[in-house]
Nucleic acid binder design. Structure first.
Length: 570
RNA sequence: GCGCCGGUAGCUCAGUAGGAUAGAGCAACUGCCUUCUAAGCAGUAGGUCGGGGGUUCGAAUCCCUUUCGGCGUGCCA
C-alpha cells in the first residue's frame, strides 16, 4: 500500500529519468547510458521551504559528472523534455529550475484535495501497511527486580512502548516483553542483603557487606518481614533464611514494578523469567551447542566463549570456576529462546548505555550459534539526569540519590513523560527538566498537542450541534488554497511516509517530532482561518470542516500509537 | 590504554539517509482576544554547528586527526 505523496514522488522520478534519458539519447551520445543512469542516486526531496515547491530533485546535480556539464545546463536540457512525460502525473502545476540546478515541482489543487480524500477513505487505516507476517519481539525496561526502578527506566519504557506501537501500526506482529532477572548471582546478593538487614534489626552489631544492596528499600523489606515474622528466622541457618526472604521480597518487587509500569500505561504481553531458563536446562543446552560449534574452551575450570572468533571484543566467561553460569550465559540462552524456540524474525532490545559493552558479545554469540538469518537490533539509550530548581542531579543507582520511577510518576504526568522522552534521540544523553515537565504551557509539549486537538474538536462539535449534520455535498476542497491550509494538508499527506521510516529506522522519536510539527500548523490554521464564521460561505466552511476532521483523524491515530489521551475539553 | 555514544543559540534539544538563507521550545524584548478556548499566533534579538584537515557541484551530516564530557572495558548484572 502506498499514499499519494509517495506515489507522486515515484511519478516525478519517472518523469525526470525519462527526460534525462531523452536528453542523453538525442543530444549527447554516451555508451551504455541506461546503465549509468541507473546508478545515479536521484532523489525526490521535500524542500524545507515551500517557496521551492512541494518536491524537488537533485537529478541534474548528481548527473553533472556523468555528462561533464554544469548542473544548470543539464537541468535546462532535462526540463525541455518534461512536457513529453507530463501524462505520468496529473498533479503538476508548474516546475522550474532553481539557482544551482535543483528542479522544483509545484503541485496543483487536485494533489491537495486527493490527500484529504485518501485520508477520508482509509480512515484509521491511513498509513497502515500490508501485513508483513513478520513476528517481532521487543524487550525493554527489564529492570533488576532486586530494587526499585529509576528515572532511566521511564525513558526506556517510553521509547520501547511507543516503538512497539509504531511497529504494530505499521503491520508487524509485535510482542512486548519484560525479562525478569530472578535468578543468578544478584539474587543471591539480594537474599544476603535482606538477611543481614533482618539480623541488624535484632542485633545492631551485625556488619553489612560491601558488595551488598545498600538501598533503603532493602531495609524496608526486611523490616516488613520482621513485622510479620518477628525474630523467628534469626536462629535459622543463613542460607535458609535468605531463601525465605527472597521468596518474600522478590514477588513484592516484581509486583511493584508491574503496577508502576501500568500506571505509565505499559502493559506487557509477556513476562519472561530468567529462572525458567535454568529449570529447562536451556543454559546447558547452549553450552553444548557452542561446544559443537567449536566456540568455547576451558581454563582454570571455567568455561569461556571464544567471542573474539565471532566478532566480539574479548573472550567471555560463561560458566564460572564455581560452576555457576554468568549473566551473559543466561542471556545467550534467553536470546536463543527468542529466536529459535519462539521463532521470532526480529528481536529488539532497548538497553541503557551502561549495557552497551554487552552488544558486541551478544552479537558474537548469535554468530557462533548460527543465528544469522534473524535480526537482533539493540537500541542503546543514553542515561537520564534530572534538572530541578536549577540543579542537575545525576542519576546513579549506587549513590541512592537516584530519582525513583515511582517518585517521578508522582510528579510528572504520564502523557507528558511519554512525549518528552520520545522527543529526544536515544543516542544523546538527556537532562529531564522536571520544572518544565509539570508546567502547563509550551515548555510542556503535551499541552501544546492536546490544546490543538481540543480546538479542532471544539470546531467540529460546534458545527455539528448547530447544523445537526454537516453537508459534505456542498464542498469544494480547491478552496483550501491558503498557505496555512495547504501546509497542514501536506503534512497530513506525509504521515504514511513518517510511519514507514520510523518503522524501518526503529525510531520512535520521529513520529513525536512529526506530531509537534503537525500541531504547530493546526494552531496556525486555527489562528488565521475561521471555520464557522459568518464571513465565509458555506462551501468554504464545509471544506475547512472536512480538513479539521481529517486532521483530527491523524491526531487520533498518533495518540493511539503513543497512548496519549486526547481530551475533548481543557 | 582500548571501545561505544555525544559536543549545534544564554539553557534544553531538532536538523528529513550529503542539499538551497542551520531550526524549535525555554529565558529576554515587541505586538495580537466584543469574532470557532490567548494552554495560542505573529515578530525582534541571539550561531566560528568543539578545533583542524580531507572527500565534491554542495558537509552540522561522510573520512582522518585533535580536544572535552558520559559510559563501558568484572569469574557484577
Amino acid at each position: 500500500m502506498c499514499c499519494i505523496l509517495m506515489q507522486t514522488k515515484e511519478k516525478l522520478k519517472k518523469i525526470l529519468k525519462l527526460s534525462l534519458d531523452s536528453f542523453a539519447r538525442n543530444d549527447i551520445k554516451i555508451e551504455n547510458i541506461n546503465e549509468k543512469l541507473f546508478k545515479l542516486d536521484i532523489n525526490i526531496e521535500i524542500p524545507a521551504q515551500r517557496d521551492y515547491g512541494e518536491f524537488s530533485s537533485n537529478i541534474s546535480l548528481v548527473s553533472a559528472k556523468l555528462f561533464k556539464k554544469s548542473p544548470r545546463f543539464i537541468a535546462e536540457n532535462i526540463i525541455k523534455y518534461v512536457p513529453d512525460f507530463l501524462g505520468v502525473c496529473d498533479y503538476i502545476l508548474k516546475y522550474e529550475i532553481a539557482g544551482n540546478g535543483f528542479i522544483n515541482f509545484y503541485m496543483n489543487n487536485k494533489f491537495y484535495s486527493e490527500i484529504l480524500c485518501e485520508i477520508d477513505k482509509k480512515k484509521e487505516n491511513y498509513g497502515k501497511y500490508e501485513q508483513k507476517n513478520k513476528r517481532v519481539l521487543i524487550e525493554f525496561v527489564s529492570s533488576n527486580p532486586t530494587g526499585p526502578m529509576h528515572i532511566g527506566n521511564a525513558r526506556l519504557g517510553a521509547l520501547g512502548d511507543c516503538l512497539s506501537g509504531i511497529l504494530n501500526f505499521f503491520g508487524y506482529e509485535v510482542l512486548t516483553e519484560f525479562y525478569v532477572n530472578d535468578a543468578g548471582n544478584q539474587i543471591q546478593k539480594f537474599g544476603e542483603s535482606l538477611s543481614l538487614r533482618y539480623e541488624q534489626i535484632f542485633d545492631k552489631n551485625v556488619e553489612f557487606i560491601e558488595d551488598g544492596y545498600h538501598g533503603e528499600d532493602i531495609k524496608l523489606l526486611a523490616q516488613e518481614f520482621a513485622n510479620i515474622h518477628g525474630d523467628k528466622y534469626i536462629k535459622v541457618k543463613s542460607n535458609e533464611r535468605e531463601k525465605v526472604l527472597i521468596n518474600y521480597a522478590l514477588p513484592r518487587n516484581i509486583n511493584k514494578i508491574k503496577s508502576d509500569l501500568e500506571r505509565y500505561k505499559i502493559f506487557y504481553d509477556s513476562w519472561f523469567y530468567e529462572s525458567e531458563l535454568y529449570k529447562n536446562n536451556e543454559i546447558s543446552n547452549i553450552i553444548q551447542k557452542l561446544e559443537k560449534n567449536n566456540a568455547i574452551y576451558r581454563e582454570n575450570n571455567a568455561i569461556w566463549f571464544k567471542a573474539t572468533d565471532f566478532g566480539g571484543e574479548k573472550d567471555e566467561i560463561l560458566i564460572r570456576t564455581n560452576g555457576i553460569p554468568t549473566y551473559f550465559a543466561a542471556d545467550i540462552a534467553y536470546h536463543v529462546n527468542k529466536f529459535v524456540t519462539r521463532n521470532f524474525d526480529m528481536c529488539i532490545n532497548i538497553w541503557g548505555a551502561d549495557h552497551h559493552g554487552h552488544v558486541a558479545r551478544m552479537q558474537a554469540a548469535m554468530n557462533a550459534l548460527g543465528i544469522n538469518n534473524k535480526i537482533l537490533k539493540i537500541i542503546i539509550v543514553q542515561l537520564v539526569s534530572v534538572f530541578r530548581d536549577g540543579n542537575i542531579c545525576k542519576m546513579s543507582k549506587r549513590s541512592g540519590q537516584a530519582e525513583t520511577f515511582a517518585s517521578f510518576l508522582e510528579e510528572v504526568n504520564t502523557d507528558s513523560a511519554r512525549i518528552i522522552f520520545n522527543m529526544q534521540n536515544p543516542g544523546s544523553k538527556m537532562v529531564f527538566n522536571i520544572n518544565e515537565a509539570i508546567k502547563n504551557d509550551m515548555s510542556n509539549p503535551v499541552y501544546y498537542v492536546k490544546y490543538a486537538y481540543v480546538r479542532l474538536k471544539n470546531i467540529v462539535n460546534l458545527v455539528d450541534n448547530n447544523k445537526k449534520k454537516e453537508n459534505f455535498n456542498n464542498i469544494n476542497l480547491d478552496l483550501l488554497n491558503s498557505p496555512e491550509e495547504r501546509e497542514l494538508i501536506f503534512i497530513l499527506g506525509m504521515f504514511p511516509e513518517e510511519i514507514a521510516s520510523s518503522s524501518c529506522l526503529l525510531d520512535s522519536t520521529k513520529i513525536t517530532k512529526y506530531l509537534i510539527n503537525l500541531v504547530s500548523w493546526v494552531h496556525k490554521f486555527y489562528q488565521f482561518k475561521k471555520v464557522r464564521s459568518s464571513e465565509i460561505n458555506e462551501k468554504l466552511s464545509n471544506s475547512r470542516l472536512f480538513l479539521c476532521k481529517q486532521t483530527i483523524r491523524i491526531m487520533e491515530i498518533i495518540a493511539n500509537i503513543l497512548k496519549i489521551d486526547m481530551p475533548e475539553k481543557m
